[in-house]
């Protein structure tokens, strides 16, 4: 199926990526080209096949419920675009 322009803008909004009206037609054409490639999987009979969500069928390991990390708040806050006292900050507009 092909995506319409409103559908492209809806997906962009869901993905939190601003797409300008000038870019929209180009994005639409490229996405539809890619979806054309992906649609090859439609014709495959996968009845009764278990999906393989991971490269290895293993159960994720659990760790003990213990504090293992030291307090490195200053270091982690230092990479934020903006921070104030103990908080990462973000102006509203």
């Amino acid at each position: 199926m092909s995506l319409t322009l409103p559908e492209v803008m809806r997906i962009a909004a869901l993905a939190r990526i601003a797409v300008t009206p000038a870019e929209a037609a180009g994005v639409q054409a490229q996405l539809n080209g890619i979806l054309g490639l992906l649609e090859q999987i439609d014709a495959v009979d996968t009845a009764g096949v278990e999906p393989m969500y991971h490269a290895r069928d293993v159960t994720l390991r659990l760790r003990a419920d213990e504090v293992t990390e030291p307090d490195r708040r200053t270091a982690f806050q230092a990479v934020a675009p903006r921070s104030r006292t103990a908080c990462i900050s973000c102006r509203r507009s």
Partner: peptide
Amino acid sequence: LVGTYVLSHGYYDAYYLKAQKI
């Protein structure tokens, strides 16, 4: 954008689930 689309409601089974079976 492609990833958002194939995971979105109504298309998950047709794309993502199908691809995992393949």
